[in-house]
Simulated scan of single mutants.
Amino acid sequence: MLKIGSVVLGASDVRRAAAFWMDALRYVPRDEIEDDWVVLRPAEGPGVQVAIGLSGTPVQAHPRVHLDLYAGDAADQAAEVERLVSLGARRVDWDRYPADPDFVVLADPEGNRFCVIDTSHG
């Protein structure tokens, strides 16, 4: 049986990306952070790992794969968006928002897009 072990993100600065995602997700390095690779894991308990590898590939404006981070409700979503922005994320002027979105599109300091989802949204 297969299961997802790690989601891998590309970065031009692995250490900068690792610092952001460790703070954002409260993850810790599984092993020593290298200049070209690191695997992050939850600080407590099980969960999907996030690996960050050195990449020279440009960021996609409309990536085919991205992370969805779940928030409990609209207030939690708003608080998490502000926390992530304070850590170095930036809001993305997303041209594909529906009329009543349950998600906010952000980019990490490397430009990788991700969403913060209001899981209570109707």
Rank of each mutant, 00 (worst) to 15 (best):
A24H: 04
V65P: 00
E82S: 15
G10D: 03
R96I: 02
V81A: 04
A75T: 07
L9Q: 00
T119G: 10
L84P: 04
V92E: 09
F114Y: 15
L67H: 09
L84A: 06
L106M: 10
V8W: 03
A51C: 13
V85E: 07
S55L: 09
Q77I: 10
L106F: 09
A19R: 15
R83D: 06
A61M: 09
L84K: 08
M1A: 11
A75P: 01
A43M: 12
H121E: 09
R26T: 12
R15L: 02
V65S: 10
P98W: 13
A19T: 10
Y97A: 06
T119L: 13
G5M: 07
D93I: 06
A19G: 05
F114I: 12
A17S: 15
D35R: 12
V92Q: 04
A18Q: 08
R30D: 12
R64G: 12
A89D: 01
E34I: 00
G45T: 11
R30A: 14
G10M: 03
I33A: 06
A74R: 14
V104W: 05
A61H: 07
D31A: 13
R16A: 15
T57A: 14
E32S: 13
E80F: 06
S55Y: 11
L54W: 06
P58K: 12
D31I: 00
V7H: 02
Q77W: 05
D23Q: 15
R30C: 05
A43G: 15
A61C: 03
D118I: 13
R96K: 15
G47E: 11
Y70N: 14
A71M: 05
R26S: 14
P101F: 10
V85F: 00
A18F: 04
D73F: 03
G88M: 05
G5K: 11
D35N: 15
V50G: 12
Y70R: 09
L9R: 01
R64C: 03
A11L: 03
A89H: 05
R26K: 13
G45D: 13
W94L: 00
A18Y: 01
H66M: 02
A71K: 06
Q49C: 15
F114T: 12
V59T: 14
V104Y: 07
A19C: 03
V8R: 06
V104N: 07
R113G: 05
L9H: 02
I33C: 08
P101Y: 09
N112G: 11
A99T: 14
D73M: 03
G56N: 11
R83C: 08
V59N: 09
I33N: 03
D76W: 03
P42M: 15
P63T: 08
V85H: 01
L87P: 01
P58V: 06
W37H: 14
I52G: 11
R26F: 02
D31R: 14
G47T: 12
A89L: 04
F20E: 00
S6V: 04
V39L: 13
Y97M: 06
A24Y: 04
H62M: 07
G111L: 14
I33S: 04
S86Y: 02
A74P: 00
G88P: 07
A78W: 01
S86V: 03
V105R: 09
D31N: 14
L69C: 09
T119D: 08
R15D: 02
A74I: 08
R16D: 05
D118Y: 15
L87H: 08
A79F: 00
G10E: 06
D100W: 04
D100L: 11
V14E: 00
E110F: 07
W37A: 00
P29E: 04
T119K: 11
V92W: 03
R83M: 10
N112L: 06
